[in-house]
Each structure stands twice: as C-alpha cells, then as structure tokens.
Write a protein that binds this DNA or RNA. Structure first.
Lengths: 165, 165
DNA sequence: ATACAAGTTAAAGTTAACTTTAAGTCAAGC
DNA sequence: GCTTGACTTAAAGTTAACTTTAACTTGTAT
C-alpha cells in the first residue's frame, strides 16, 4: 500500500507538516514522489516514521536520527554501527524509565500525603511527618525529596556532567 | 540549613540561572532574601525544587507548576485540588511509562534484528522477516512497527485528540 | 585594603521541533 | 469544465525553558 502525506499523518497521529519537515531534514531518504511532485508514503516509510518516533522517545535529537538514517543508506557496511546505536538507546531508555519510576514514587507519596491532609482537613497532620510514619513503599520517595539518598553524590555528579556535555 | 543559589544549584544538579528563572516565574513563593538582596534557599525551598522537577517530568509545563504553587500559598483551602492534581499526574505518568516500555520493546527488537544481521553480514537475513520467526517477546514490537495493533484505532484517535488540544 | 569569586538585575539570545503563511498546483467528483 | 480539498514550496513565525550578557554589588580570604 501507499499513502498521501495526509493519510500517512493520520495513520501516525502527527500533522502533515511534521512529515514534510522530517523529509526536509533528510529523515525519510526512501520517500518517493509522483510525477507531479506529491509525496508517496510506502509501508516502509510509515515504519521509518515509527522508528523515528521511537528513537526520539529514547532521547535522540532529530539531528542524531538523521545520522542513523544516513547509516541505513550506506547499507550493510553500517550494520555494526546501527546495532551499537540501538544498544546505546536501549540502555539510555532503560535508565530513563528507572528515573520515571522514581518520580512516580514521589507522586504516589504526594497522593498519600494529600489524601491524609484532606481527611484531616489540614496539611499540619502530615507536614514534616517522621519517616517511620510513612508507608514503607513510599519512604524512598521521602528520602529523595529530603535529599537523603545513599547514591545521591553519584547521581548528582552524573547530572552535573550531563549538563556540561 | 540554608544555601546560596550556587550551593542549591549544585545540590539539585541544575544551573544557578535556572533557579533564578524559577523564582522569577513565581515557582518558589517561599524563597527568602538576605538584607542585601541575595537569595536564601531553605531545605523547604530545595524540596520545592525537587517537586517542581517531578511535576515537570510528569508532563506539566512550568506554567502549570506555577498554578500548583499558587495553590500551596492558598493553604488548606486548596488541599483537595492539590490531591486531584497529584492523582492526575500519577495517572499521566503511569501511561507515559507504559508508552516508554513499548518503545523499549521496539529498541529491543531492533537490537535482536541488527544482532542477527551483523552475524550474517547482511540485513537481507532479517529484512521483512515473518512474524513467527521473531522471538515471542518481541512480536508485539514488530506488530507495532507494521501497524498491526489491536488497540491501534483507539490509540491513534487519542493521539489525534491530544494534538488538537 | 584589596582582589576576586559569587551574588544581583533586566533584557536579549538560544535551541529544537515544529507550525503557519502565502502563493500557487493538482486530482476527483459532479 | 469547474469547484473543492489536498497537495506543493520557501520563508517566516512560534513556543517553552532556559542561558547569556552586561553592568553592577557583596562577602570572604589574604
């Protein structure tokens, strides 16, 4: 099957202008045109768009995604590089999901915190609550908020490095 | 304890200018100053910064975070609203983590895909591979890439709505 | 007492990833 | 054949979240 830019956009849940922009940035090297110049999306192009979305979500910029697309054009010579890229993205996203879980835990603590506050009609009952009066599975979150992380120094240093880079 | 903007920034792993910017946007309503005008970060302010970071990561814009900070200034009258906000953020982040897991699964498939390609020295051995020759735990990822999702229509419609809003 | 690192402000600059605009071309249904 | 909606382009505009700059002040260490 083939699709117009509008159909492709609808399938992918993005705006047509986004797909035109992607092509202009060299992210869709296999995209064809009709004789009159209209874009023709094949299933391969649709799949490429889904890959672009995944790479983006894994933390890659479109500039970096372009580098990957350039590799695919090079053919089998770049296979090892492409494998390495996906392995790196896998590690990066895994770490990011771990971070998200930590954030989720904080949100869960805050739900508990405000749940108790609403019950009591005042925040006083939970503000500065001792750690051991917090449900066990939420204590990590409190420790994080209060800056009592065992691995704190390591993580802060990583963040500092990441900012410089 | 109290801290200067530089110390606070180091503790939080952000730039001092970021914290100044946050204050300028009304995100740190409890932040004090010395007589000479220098910012004085208390442990409460540091914790507020960590909450800001969590809310941001859960998908809130700084404008929305400000709305939350305005609620905290209102006191106990806004407790129910604050609970509702954190509950909504929890649901939102949970969904986001699920999306991330789906993306991770695609990356894992691509690692497998390029792993086999590198082994064989050519992509031909995996390009357009039949679904039943893919490891079972990666078949969902392939289905997603090829657009064979059971829940596809629902999710695309949600995305379309989200884009309009 | 003097240097100097770190603080202050307002205002302008940056960046990525789109989106919009304007002016025009094309294709499908009536 | 004509309308209409979808396509085309290049170029300008948008947005959020900072970051940088410039000119100045303050606190600390020698």
């Amino acid at each position: 099957m083939t699709y117009t830019v509008g159909q492709a956009a609808a399938m992918l849940g993005v705006a047509p202008s986004t797909l035109r922009y992607y092509e202009s940035q060299g992210l869709l090297p296999s995209l064809k045109r009709t004789d009159s110049g209209r874009r023709v999306f094949s299933d391969t192009d649709i799949e490429a768009c889904r890959i672009i979305e995944c790479l983006k979500q894994s933390g890659l910029s479109l500039t970096d995604v372009k580098r990957f697309m350039d590799m695919t054009v090079e053919g089998d010579a770049s296979l090892a590089d492409r494998l390495a890229l996906f392995q790196a993205r896998r590690e990066s996203l895994t770490r990011e999901i771990e971070d998200m879980q930590r954030v989720l835990n904080v949100l869960e603590f805050k739900c508990w915190y405000y749940g108790r506050a609403v019950e009591a009609g005042t925040e006083d009952v939970v503000r500065n609550i001792p750690l051991d009066q917090v449900p066990e599975n939420l204590q990590d979150a409190v420790a994080f908020l209060r800056g009592i992380e065992g691995e704190s120094e390591q993580r802060e240093m990583e963040k500092a490095k990441a900012r410089k880079a």
